[in-house]
């Protein structure tokens, strides 16, 4: 990573760059950025925990995002959130499944209000969702990944033999 300036204002862009590349901001990156910019670690930690965008733990392989905007709320987003949380076995304190496969993010309004309620699976935006549709999509995703994992396992075993 190259830094053209020791300017403090480069802190957030650098952290964003790390997050784009790694999916989260690991501790080593914080130490390194702190050393380059001469900003204390506690200061960076304060900035990281302030902004909703930053994660300090790795993100799941698949990301399910549910919009929490007003239009989505009045069109039933809370019921969809409940349904997806139940399917993935997550709750308010856990946003990523134990196997690290799925992360559920409740995101701020991303402005596709006319399609409310909206859910994004990986890069795919789905509008006019119902809890039932959401459950089906999540189950499909889980199944597809399980199949992939099984195939990978057989492949690996075949290679070992």
């Amino acid at each position: 990573m190259t830094v053209s300036t020791q300017d403090r204002s480069a802190l957030i862009p650098l952290l964003q760059q790390v997050q784009v590349e790694m999916g989260y901001v690991p501790r080593e990156a914080i130490d390194e950025i702190g050393a380059v910019l001469r900003v204390s670690t506690s200061d960076i930690f304060g900035v990281l925990t302030f902004y909703a965008q930053f994660r300090l733990t790795p993100v799941g392989r698949h990301q399910v995002k549910i919009c929490q905007g007003t239009a989505c709320h009045v069109q039933g987003a809370p019921l969809i959130t409940d349904a997806v949380e139940e399917e993935l076995g997550l709750d308010d304190d856990h946003d990523t499944t134990e196997d690290g496969e799925f992360t559920l993010e409740k995101v701020a309004c991303f402005g596709a209000c006319s399609l409310a309620p909206v859910m994004i699976i990986d890069e795919d935006t789905k509008g006019n969702i119902t809890p039932d549709k959401a459950r089906r999509m999540v189950r499909k995703l889980i199944k597809a990944q399980a199949k992939k994992n099984a195939a990978a396992k057989t492949n690996a075993e075949a290679k070992n033999e």
């Binding site: 300017d7 403090r8 204002s9 802190l11 957030i12 952290l15 900035v47 302030f50 902004y51 909703a52």
Partner: peptide, 22 residues
């Protein structure tokens, strides 16, 4: 680019954010 904080719409908070602060 903002980093996900509604309060940064407030002028002094926005300035702090541009400066790289909370």
């Amino acid at each position: 680019e903002g980093a996900g904080a509604f309060v940064c719409g407030e002028e002094t908070a926005l300035i702090a954010s541009v400066e790289g602060l909370r």
